[in-house]
Design a protein around this nucleic acid. Structure first.
Lengths: 255, 255
DNA sequence: GAGTGGTCTAGACCACCCT
DNA sequence: GGGTGGTCTAGACCACTCC
């Protein structure tokens, strides 16, 4: 007799709820039944329902409002053509009403994230600027830039309405090469706070190393975006291997 | 008087345990103290410890072995230069001892993932081939390819030791363009099974659309990798915006 | 058998929202 | 007040591993 191990209750419940969302039984913007109602319906304890709902947190399909209930979240995502520095967002990033870039901190820190070991990032203390770029009031990018300490006075007045790499370029710093490393990761503590996302939420990251013509000047940094707010696209001709475009500067896209 | 809301116990515990791992107090490969021991030490219930440990699942820093305990996992990751089709892994992917590519299923399916709406993917039934690419016995890529139904007989014998896109190219199919969409996402059910990763685990995804010279022939697909097993890199000259390389064909990297 | 972690439950307390 | 979900606990049961 084959050994059949039933999947855990919270997993069954999670999948049932997921199915109801993707099949539009629970519609976007709608309030889900209360935990106790779901517990009655599924014939399990309310704790198990809570467990299932909590495990759905990282999928981004739900939004819980304290005291009100749990809603089905809209899924809409920005698709951005991968460009040479990748921290810009074209016209959407121009300073203007709404001030899309907000600097959250300027500190002195070492580069600690082990992912930077792929670059040969310096180990000493650097100037660290963190900022949030929003579009239509929605935070999309969380940027952490590491700059030489000497630079502070020169660029600090430009912060507040553009990203560090943009500010430097506008001030005449000439970069000759960009190294990018694209990966995924659970949200950092800072990103959790910046985006209001829960622990473990998947993010798309772009670690960058901007190499200036001045051989002693480099900018390191990392941009994080919640997985459901940004994706990046690339097109290339196959015989040449060269990148086509960038053509469009970012478009909203249901996904 | 400022309102100070203490962070939840499970969050405090989670951060303490995380800190002990990153600061090497709990070393790689080592067994963590048992749940009850941690509960005693932190002065909380064992349930709260379990909760904290479960929330650490998606960070990939722990590995729990049933009946034994919880270990600190080694963090080592493949960094792969982004190339024109992005489903290949250079020499590592050549068929040989160990048979790195394993086809898990060949079915007929529609493309359902809404992320494909960024491409103008067909809505009809297609031939769907899923396969796992491993390196050193470790699964790295989970590929889902969607092909025209007519193609089955022609390529099916090539499956089993290479990815679909590779097999097609080796059979003479000439592609003129690749469209890529890179994003992050929680692991799909299939990826969870293929990689043995828990629900909600962040993955790096590359959706691809290979456009053949034959205007009626297209290949769509998606490659998923756990965030802690693969990252991709890119270098470009800045004045031209052209991609440098690919140079190295993949290297292991602590991160 | 004694240890491990995973599951499931009941029950209590809290903060929040609406009426 | 009565509704919501989030937190924390105690306790029971299970499957697993090692001795």
């Amino acid at each position: 007799m084959p050994k059949v191990v039933a999947s855990p209750l919270h997993e069954q419940v999670r999948k049932k709820i997921t199915r109801r969302v993707v099949e539009n039984e629970y519609k976007v913007g709608e309030l889900l039944p209360s935990v106790s109602a779901l517990a009655d319906e599924f014939g399990v304890s309310s704790i198990t329902i809570k467990r299932a709902l909590r495990d759905l947190q990282s999928t981004g399909i739900l939004r819980t409002v304290p005291g009100l209930g749990i809603f089905v979240r809209e899924r809409r995502r920005l698709v951005r053509e991968l460009d040479f520095c990748f921290t810009s967002l074209g016209e959407a990033q121009r300073p203007g009403p709404g001030r899309p870039v907000h600097v959250t901190s300027i500190t002195r820190e070492r580069i600690l994230d082990p992912a930077f070991s792929a670059f040969d990032a310096p180990t000493g203390t650097m100037l660290c600027v963190r900022s949030i770029l929003s579009i239509d009031e929605v935070p999309i990018l969380f940027d952490t830039s590491y700059l030489p300490l000497s630079l502070k006075d020169k660029v600090v007045d430009e912060f507040g309405d553009k990203l560090v790499s943009e500010a430097l370029r506008d001030q005449g710093t000439c970069f000759r090469m960009t190294r990018l490393l694209i990966d995924a990761a659970p949200a950092s503590d800072e990103a959790q706070q910046a985006f209001g996302i829960p622990n473990g939420y998947p993010t798309l990251r772009r670690l960058y190393h901007l190499i200036a013509v001045d051989p002693f000047f480099s900018v390191f940094g990392i941009v994080e975006s919640p997985f459901d707010r940004l994706a990046c696209s690339i097109e290339m001709d196959l015989p040449t291997g060269k990148i086509t475009g960038p053509r469009s500067t970012g478009s909203m896209n249901h996904s």
